[in-house]
Design a binder for these strands. Sequence first.
DNA 1: CAAGAGATTAGG
DNA 2: CTAATCTCTTGC
Length: 201
Amino acid sequence: MPAWPDLLGPVEEVAPHLLGAVLRRDEVAVRITEVEAYAGTDDPASHSYRGRTRRNETMHGAAGHLYCYFTYGMHTCANVVTGPAGTPSAVLLRAGEVVDGIERARSRRGGVVDSALARGPANLCRALGLDLGDDGVAFDATSGVRLLLPSHPLAPAVVSIGPRVGVRQGWETAWRWWVTADPTVSAYRRHPRADPAVPGS
DNA sequence: CAAGAGATTAGG
DNA sequence: CTAATCTCTTGC
């Protein structure tokens, strides 16, 4: 029996179930309002599309771990790994609502309105104090990083679905889920040089 | 080996 | 629109 049976499964099924989950890092907790799915070698937008590297090592591990990566020379983003070991897939946590430790989150983010404290994948990490040192940690008491899944998935009526933000290849795949009209959700931005639509699709 | 792109963001 | 400047991929 895997440690996180609810996280193990096709990433496009697990991802929307993470909406409403609470990710806690010590005293700060965030209720997840926006996620994106990234799969293995068939998904051109995924870090694991071109195989295993030192950076995406955690993505190839077992479900129930945190995959943190560094990007654009300055930002950390966090994912929940959802595949069995050897099958890379993960859910990018794009935005959330700070539900505990808001004073600490404010001091880390400096000057933004509360709804923007954890808006955007890199900002969510800053609010929670997550960085590369948290890559690969398991969700358990000893790591200080915990994940509380909702007892029931959010009703489909309050969930919106659309294309992933900022990806150049595979942008047509509607693998982004967010809580409809939630003020903490980030704005959609197309990649400046997104691949043209495939004719006939 | 050098250059470019990237699951981003804040600031003009 | 640009800079910030890490990690990996692509091109010469």
